[in-house]
Design a protein around this nucleic acid. Structure first.
Length: 188
DNA sequence: TGAGCGGCTCCTTATATATCAGCTTCGG
DNA sequence: CCGAAGCTGATATATAAGGAGCCGCTCA
């Protein structure tokens, strides 16, 4: 168990989306909600942005009733801000009840740390050139795409790792664990 | 030949990670 | 006035979303 706490991954960003199946008048909604929370500039981007507090998740709402929540660093926070958004729309009578069964986490971005410096050139060969991309002149990290397809890992020479593309923290953790196992065989 | 349509790419947002170039600012 | 130091914005990753623009293809 000490292994998983020592090499546990941390959520740094969650992206979730849902659909309310209601056509929205974003111009009207943005005005009614107020510019302390809402911002909408259709010439710049078709979505309306809602930010309830600084350094907190951002919600982007579309004309079609579809929306995305980005920037939460826990499942609880993502759901709390979705609920706040649904509550607001419910109060404004845009939707009947503050519920949305369609909401799903689409991307869970995590960080991990191997606590060990790596030679990325050697690692690229070990992991297999068809699964890795490493062009230090383009980007300092090695990009590793495991066969499972459940995540993509960005590996840095410092041993720090970014795990992205999975939709649960569990699959991000298992992708990181599998990568660490590969690394152990490589180092020994 | 031109209209129309489908598919594709880019834009925007968050976030960690690291490395470069280019720019500003400051001290001696 | 020049070097150093600091800061900013690019580079790349995933993901949802709607719209603009572009390219190629088909059909009249």
């Amino acid at each position: 168990m000490s292994d998983s706490s020592k090499f546990g991954v941390q959520i740094v960003n969650l992206v979730g989306s849902g659909s309310l199946d209601v056509e929205m008048d974003l111009e009207y909604l943005a005005r009614d909600i107020g510019e302390s929370i809402a911002s909408y500039d259709p010439n710049k981007y078709p979505g309306m942005y809602l930010r309830f507090s600084e350094d907190k998740p951002l919600i982007t709402v579309y004309r079609t009733g579809k929306y995305i929540v980005v920037g939460a660093n826990s499942l609880e926070e993502a759901h709390a801000f979705r609920d706040r958004f649904l509550g607001l729309l419910s109060e404004m009578r845009v939707i009947d009840e503050a519920k949305d069964e369609s909401f799903r986490i689409q991307n869970c971005v995590c960080t991990g740390n191997l606590k060990e410096n790596l030679s990325l050139n050697a690692l690229a060969i070990e992991l297999g050139l068809e699964k890795t991309e490493y062009e230090p002149e383009q980007f300092p990290g090695l990009i590793y795409r495991p066969d499972t397809g459940e995540a993509v890992l960005l590996v840095f020479a410092t041993g720090k790792v970014v795990i992205t593309g999975s939709n649960t923290i569990e699959s991000a953790q298992s992708a990181f664990d599998a990568f660490r196992e590969q690394l152990d065989t490589f180092l020994n």
